[in-house]
Amino acid sequence: MCLGVPGKVVSVEGQVALVDFFGVRRETRLDVIDEPVGPGDYVLNHVGFAIRKIPAEDIRETLSLYELLLREAGGDMMADDVRGEIEAARGAARQEAARA
């Protein structure tokens, strides 16, 4: 139920961080986070409070988790079809980007 938005810490002053949420900046309180954070760190914000520092390597971990899940579930014709589609779509997107 809880709206959580990730953002990147710009600066920290005491228990308050200025966080860049990909377009707007907003102060976020650090009272309840369990690790020290500094500029450049990603944090998860809920109702004006940072509730989690998101280590950059964990973002990569999530992405590789998806890859792993897909690999585990894949390995047959259908999944290969989908991979083919993915590649085709990416190619199309690249062409589109090139045109633009």
Binding site: P6, K8, V10, D20, F22, G23, R25, Y42, I59, T62, L63, Y66, L69, L70, A73, G74, M78, A79, D81, V82, R83, E85, I86, A89, R90
Partner: peptide, 26 residues
């Protein structure tokens, strides 16, 4: 102000429709 590149946003947002189709197929 230093802002995030669009790629970072996509990376942190996990909104790639192509990957979504692969997951749905799985």
């Amino acid at each position: 102000p230093e802002t995030l590149a669009r790629d970072d946003v996509h990376e942190l947002k996990f909104r790639d429709p192509v990957k979504a189709r692969a997951l749905t197929a799985a």
